[in-house]
Each structure stands twice: as C-alpha cells, then as structure tokens.
Amino acid sequence: TFELKGKVGKVVKIAEDHYLVESEGDKWIAYSDEKLSLGDRVMVVDVDGLKLKVKRIP
C-alpha cells in the first residue's frame, strides 16, 4: 500500500472545513488541529480513510 504517513506536502487550497494538500504529485483532503495558510509546508501525521491529518513544519 502507498504509505503517506511522514510525507511532506503543501497546502494548495483552503475550504470551509478542510484543506487541500499536494503531496507526491497528488492532491488530498486534509485537516489539522492548527490553522494553516496557503503555501504552508505540512507533514502527514495520520491517515483516516482518504483524509490526511497534517501538521505545519518549518
């Protein structure tokens, strides 16, 4: 299986209740415990079905 946990991506869209993150050339629906901005670099900390939980990284 394709393992996304630990992968790095970038926030490419902000929606009302989720983010769109591009990682490894694909776009994924993501959510975070912190507020993210367009262009933020993020790391995948968990995968919930087809949704990614991400956190901001420097």
Rank of each mutant, 00 (worst) to 15 (best):
T1F: 15
T1A: 15
T1Y: 15
F2T: 15
F2Q: 15
F2H: 15
F2P: 15
F2I: 15
F2Y: 03
E3G: 01
E3C: 11
E3H: 02
E3Y: 03
L4D: 15
L4V: 14
L4G: 15
L4S: 14
K5R: 03
K5L: 15
K5T: 14
K5M: 15
G6T: 01
G6E: 02
K7M: 11
K7E: 05
K7Q: 05
K7V: 04
K7W: 03
K7N: 04
V8H: 04
V8I: 14
G9M: 15
G9W: 02
G9F: 12
V11W: 01
V11D: 00
V11I: 07
V11C: 11
V12N: 05
V12P: 00
V12A: 06
V12D: 05
V12Q: 05
K13E: 08
K13L: 10
I14D: 07
I14P: 02
A15K: 09
E16M: 11
D17R: 13
D17K: 10
H18W: 10
H18P: 00
H18A: 10
H18Q: 11
H18S: 10
Y19S: 04
Y19L: 09
Y19F: 07
Y19C: 10
Y19H: 03
L20T: 10
L20S: 08
L20N: 05
V21L: 06
V21D: 00
E22A: 06
E22I: 09
E22Q: 05
E22Y: 12
E22H: 10
S23T: 13
S23L: 15
E24F: 03
E24W: 03
E24H: 03
E24N: 03
G25L: 05
D26H: 13
D26K: 11
D26M: 14
K27T: 11
K27M: 09
W28T: 02
I29T: 08
I29D: 06
A30L: 02
A30M: 12
Y31A: 07
Y31E: 12
S32P: 01
S32C: 08
S32D: 03
D33C: 14
D33H: 12
D33Y: 13
E34V: 07
E34S: 07
E34F: 05
E34Q: 07
K35N: 07
K35Q: 08
K35M: 06
K35E: 06
L36I: 06
L36A: 02
S37R: 09
S37E: 10
S37T: 09
L38H: 07
L38G: 04
L38R: 07
L38D: 05
G39S: 09
G39A: 09
D40T: 13
D40S: 12
R41E: 14
V42C: 10
M43Q: 05
V44P: 01
V44F: 15
V45N: 04
V45L: 11
V45K: 03
D46Q: 03
D46I: 03
V47Y: 05
V47P: 03
D48Q: 12
D48C: 14
D48T: 12
D48S: 05
D48R: 05
L50Q: 09
L50N: 07
L50M: 12
L50V: 08
L50R: 10
K51Y: 13
L52M: 03
V54G: 01
V54N: 00
K55S: 13
K55G: 05
K55W: 11
K55E: 14
K55F: 10
R56P: 07
R56Y: 07
R56N: 04
R56K: 06
I57A: 08
P58W: 10
P58S: 11
P58Y: 13
P58C: 14
